[in-house]
Design a protein around this nucleic acid. Sequence first.
DNA 1: GATGAATGAGGCTTCATTCAT
DNA 2: CATGAATGAAGCCTCATTCAT
Lengths: 196, 196, 196, 196
Amino acid sequence: MQAAIQTAKIKPTGRPRKPEVEARILDVTMQLMCEEGFSRMSIDGIAVAAGVSKPTIYRRWSGKADIATAALERLRLAEPSVEGKHGLDKVRALLFNFRKSLLRPNGMALIGVVLTEERHNPELMKHFRERIVKPRREMVATALEEARAMGEIQKHADIDAMVTMLIGSFYGRYLSGASIPPGWIIRIVDALVCKG
Amino acid sequence: MQAAIQTAKIKPTGRPRKPEVEARILDVTMQLMCEEGFSRMSIDGIAVAAGVSKPTIYRRWSGKADIATAALERLRLAEPSVEGKHGLDKVRALLFNFRKSLLRPNGMALIGVVLTEERHNPELMKHFRERIVKPRREMVATALEEARAMGEIQKHADIDAMVTMLIGSFYGRYLSGASIPPGWIIRIVDALVCKG
Amino acid sequence: MQAAIQTAKIKPTGRPRKPEVEARILDVTMQLMCEEGFSRMSIDGIAVAAGVSKPTIYRRWSGKADIATAALERLRLAEPSVEGKHGLDKVRALLFNFRKSLLRPNGMALIGVVLTEERHNPELMKHFRERIVKPRREMVATALEEARAMGEIQKHADIDAMVTMLIGSFYGRYLSGASIPPGWIIRIVDALVCKG
Amino acid sequence: MQAAIQTAKIKPTGRPRKPEVEARILDVTMQLMCEEGFSRMSIDGIAVAAGVSKPTIYRRWSGKADIATAALERLRLAEPSVEGKHGLDKVRALLFNFRKSLLRPNGMALIGVVLTEERHNPELMKHFRERIVKPRREMVATALEEARAMGEIQKHADIDAMVTMLIGSFYGRYLSGASIPPGWIIRIVDALVCKG
DNA sequence: GATGAATGAGGCTTCATTCAT
DNA sequence: CATGAATGAAGCCTCATTCAT
């Protein structure tokens, strides 16, 4: 990290790259990839939408797959705060955020892309897992552990399975064609909790 | 005369179609679509792999989207028998079949395709839901109802949510990057059943 | 001619060709050729419009050019009667007929076709000249000769040039983009006749 | 600043276009269109003959019809000088030039193209009329008016008809199949002039 | 003889990528 | 470094023609 900062201080020769260009290109790439899918997304389209020329893109990345990878790599799970919530309430709050992100336009499209491209561009899936899936799972798992500690769920609950079922239920619901109302979150959490 | 009309098999004139061609084309289409995705799949590729010429394809379908739709439309949930099982055992058996189909090469790819193409070719998603998702959900739901009747699960269990979570957990698991061992089925069913 | 009739009496073996089919195909061919031009005209289009299959066409003619040629070959200058007219009046009547045929939809299109195809299918131009151009020219020339005999035009008038100018003026007028009103005929005939 | 704006030749950025390419493509297009007709002419053919790639063409024009239109739009009546001639002499000189252009290889072919394409690409006919037909007609008309002023032709001569007949006679002659010798010009002018 | 099916060849257009200022 | 231009390789689709009943 320190090294990186030092490097940044070396005055680069030649015309420096405008830093916001990079971001704009990757933003546009992500958007187009979600809208069109990887194959249909064109470098031309990215260039036009980002307001740059194609060589400007190729100077930074080596090809279409590389750009897409970079766009995915930059992804962070932008999770709104769930401060102040605890245990199952926190779980529900996290799932509520998840729901919101899925309901955004093209909210599921990225999953389609990484699945479709898994064979051709495994990097995409890899980054998607690292940047999006894993953090979310960890947050939910932590909250569930807290709930367990609080006695809201059983001592021997299979937290890993629970995380997967909670999150997976959204995919399942989407693929079934049914809408995902806010109440869905109540239902799935209830389904896991014995109220005997 | 009436009889004649009723029974007359309309004699088809002209050269008959090679009978197996249709199936071969659609098989190949489905395979390529899973391997490459809709966009990358090419008519040329289908023609070569099916051993026919392109016009032979175009005589039957009007274009790429039409062929893909036909391939999906032809899909049926080919569910191996779960005869003799009942209640939760049947649920587990059904999920075991599901697992097997997902673990096949490209088992998840089709989901990627329909998600990616949802905007451009909504027909694909529609058929996927009708032919694959819905039948499977109904089978699992029926088995769960049976389990409920048998007292294996609670009276007021939210069966719809359970179906979605069970099936969805496979998607969640796949996207997490973890493998899906046979024991997974035990775990997710257990997670839903109170063993108070 | 007699021989032909005798030949016709020989009972042909096999299923006889429906005679009106031939005519229908050629009619359709001529029409499509005028509407679309030779290249754009398709055998498929002819077959569909004539209500026959493509091999039915290929059994009779050897290819696209052959069909087009046959269609042109069948053309006859269908000149409405100008009986009772003489001299310049007859000339004007003939030109009036000519005008009418040019003003029909696609009236000039055939000329476009034969000119465009002159290099690739010289037969078309040849038949067009023989069946259409030449007969019309001869009729006009004869009428002009009559007019000369009647003293309506000068003794030494260059009848060949006059025919060409009269007829050609319609092409010139069409290409200029101006309409061709009935009065046009009066004007061009007047232009050739000295009224000193 | 104002001055700067006014005089500044906008510095073009990026790789400049090879300068002669445009002209070469349009030349080739015109030639192929005359030789083959619009339909038979292919973009591939143009690209090869012009020594460029197809995208180089598509960067400049939006499609086949657009290229053809551009080629026609670029046409100018390249009329050799008729300086020093006046009245009917000038008319004859102009017609002599016309004759020469018609006798060039494919001299009539363009007319075939515009006629054939009139329905599908009316722009072609429009440009042909504007660039070629109209200028020529105006030149001939002007010369005829001069001749009239000089007393070479009658006061009340129908100049518009005369122009059309003179020019049209070439089309008529061509379609008749007869050659167009130099003497033709003498004959048609004589035919219009009373030598009583 | 007539039909519907099949095909090889080719046409238009676009894309990812590289070049030349 | 950024740009507009150029390109080879496909991709989709259609056509003239032939095949097999």
